[in-house]
Amino acid sequence: MDELTMVRGWEADEQGLSDDARVAARARLGAAMAEESRGGASRGGVLSRRLVFRTALVGVTAAAVGATVVVSRDAGDDHKPRLGAISATEVLRKAADRSRAAGSDLPVPRDDQYFYYRTYILRTPVKGGRTRTWTDESWMSVDGSKPSLREEHGKIHHDPPLGEHEVRWPPTVYSKLKAMPTDPDKLLARFRMGRPGSPDNDRYAFFEGCMLLMGPRVMPPGLQAAAFEALAKLPRIRLDYDAVDVAGRSAVGVSYPKTEWTFLFDRKTYDYLGLRTKGSSPRKVHGEWKQANWYYETRSLQDIQVVDGIGQHG
């Protein structure tokens, strides 16, 4: 199976691929193939045939937008909100500061260990109906040399070890994440895949940033903060203001026009809470795939640990 056939095949998957996601996937595929081709000469011309950058959240559209959001509190009551205007850029910068201040209490992982993740997913139909929830657990090999177990919407996937020449974006291997730039300008250039800033290129850059932070993966020190600061440099980012609740915490969202992803942050602390999307379940009608049963989906990381094997919880 060639790589473009793989991309086309994803479109018939349970989640489906939107136009933005499809174009971005093909762009990443082309960039990955070009990179492998350049590196292939030094490896005797061996090219990867297994370019893996599949995402569990695709086929979604932009959420409601707003220019400002209530984020401050009344001086006499820390729990009483009052009006205050803040930009999407400021939210991302404050989230970066919060990420650096929070740090991580995880030990430096060994290559033979696993990252354990527990992710909470909430799916609500747009036109009303039964809300569905999942609490997925995954065990990902730190260096990719061992099989991993990944749960998506309650379904178990047994992922084989990564191949020597396998290209995966965003990476899940800790050493590759650690090698990514933590300078916001350099990281933004990576998100744009070296292309100049423009509405289209910046939209794909925002998509790449969402993919990096979607998980499951562990952010080495400074990478998450750098990602927020890099995306804060995009001139068209905006706030989504519709009182999203993430596991009991009121959230403010940051998105980009004509994209399908929204970062969610705690309104009071600016802690990163997760991602929200709007998606649909494709249906085949008269031989053609149609989008139907639209829903909002929120995904938030509940726990992460370094463990020695699959099945352990830290």
Rank of each mutant, 00 (worst) to 15 (best):
R8K: 13
Q15K: 04
A21G: 06
V23S: 04
V23G: 00
R28P: 02
S37M: 00
R43P: 03
L51Y: 07
L57Q: 10
V58D: 01
A62R: 09
T68D: 13
T68I: 08
V71Q: 11
V71W: 15
V71M: 07
R73E: 11
G76H: 13
L83F: 15
I86S: 12
I86P: 06
E90P: 02
E90Y: 03
A95K: 03
S99N: 08
A101S: 05
A101T: 13
D105L: 05
L106W: 08
P107D: 12
Y117K: 05
T124D: 14
G128D: 15
T133C: 14
M140K: 00
V142L: 01
G144W: 08
K146P: 05
S148L: 10
R150A: 07
R150D: 03
I156R: 14
H157M: 04
H157T: 06
H157P: 01
H158Q: 12
P161E: 07
V167T: 00
Y174R: 05
S175V: 10
A179G: 10
P181K: 05
K186T: 07
R192E: 00
D202K: 02
F207N: 00
G209P: 00
L213H: 04
P216S: 11
P221E: 15
L223K: 09
A227E: 01
E229G: 06
I237W: 11
I237K: 05
D245H: 12
V246P: 07
V254C: 01
S255T: 09
P257K: 00
T259V: 01
L273D: 07
G279V: 10
S280M: 04
S281F: 13
P282H: 10
K284P: 14
V285G: 14
K290D: 08
N293S: 09
D308N: 05
D308A: 02
